[in-house]
Nucleic acid binder design. Sequence first.
DNA 1: AACCAAGCCAACCGCCGGAGT
DNA 2: TACTCCGGCGGTTGGCTTGGT
Length: 327
Amino acid sequence: MGRPPCCDKVGVKKGPWTPEEDLMLVSYVQEHGPGNWRAVPTNTGLMRCSKSCRLRWTNYLRPGIKRGNFTDQEEKLIIHLQALLGNRWAAIASYLPERTDNDIKNYWNTHLKKKLKKMQAGEGGGGDDGAAGAASGSDGGDAAGDRTGGAGAGKRPAVPKGQWERRLQTDIHTARQALRDALSLEPSVTPAKVAPPPTPPGSTTYASSAENIARLLEGWLRPGGGKGPEASGSTSTTATTQQRPQCSGEGAASASASHSGGAAGNTAAQTPDYSTETSKMAGSAAGAGSAPAFSMLESWLLDDGMGHGEVGLMADVVPLGDPSEFF
DNA sequence: AACCAAGCCAACCGCCGGAGT
DNA sequence: TACTCCGGCGGTTGGCTTGGT
């Protein structure tokens, strides 16, 4: 009812984030932990909407985020989960702790949708149709969102959150089965077989403090070093896939050590606790690829004992153990 | 070499539910 | 109980990049 906008539109900066802004945000989160986003712009001097800050953090600066290079297994997982859950990207993302819902959503919209369509067009198209089949069974990739909500704008599930979570829990077993099927279709696609994504050049260790981040950014901002500040607009691509993770992920890793629940911790899409991963990630950042993640996936699938309907299973499985196995 | 179209992705927008007062 | 605030989610868009002509 007449709720004011989350931030005044005047004097609020929009558009791509600059490295400086990222730095400010990361530094702030390091100090205070994520959450209380409302206070972020005022406390940091960022001319950004609180929402924008949160988004930037969760989609980009948060530790443990892997960008680009979706593996076959990830693809399959997404396809299956999408078939099961519809366009609940946050829920889907909770099964892929390294991915953000935005990333998954984008990937779905730009790649997977088409892929599935193609597969269906080519029908019978054997190959990986284990996955495709599952997806096509439900909604064929398009308009998937409608399967959930329907009501009104069709934006929300018709069921309240609690119910949705319960439903998700019951879906877990179905999901598992589907995943088992998918993976068993290609038993040869073992972690070892999956070519790890190329190691980003210069990915050594991570910033674990504001200082380090600053140092990283220094190189970043140096005119010679890549695209320079102006390119910040395109924090995208180049800077993104290579340098950014260094500063963001790790820098923030220690930050989240202090994140005391803040905003986190209610739904299935809950973000994992990164508090332990800081240094470990550094070591593994070098060449991990995604293979280990799928070892975890496999063990998750095989571990029938653990599944008492926990939501955010992967999130449970993943960060609590040894994160280094993951990244 | 220049132009155009398609693809991709980061960010924005609006809505909703939960928590707090 | 009613109201407000805040954070989260999914859909959509704008702008940059890449590929084709």
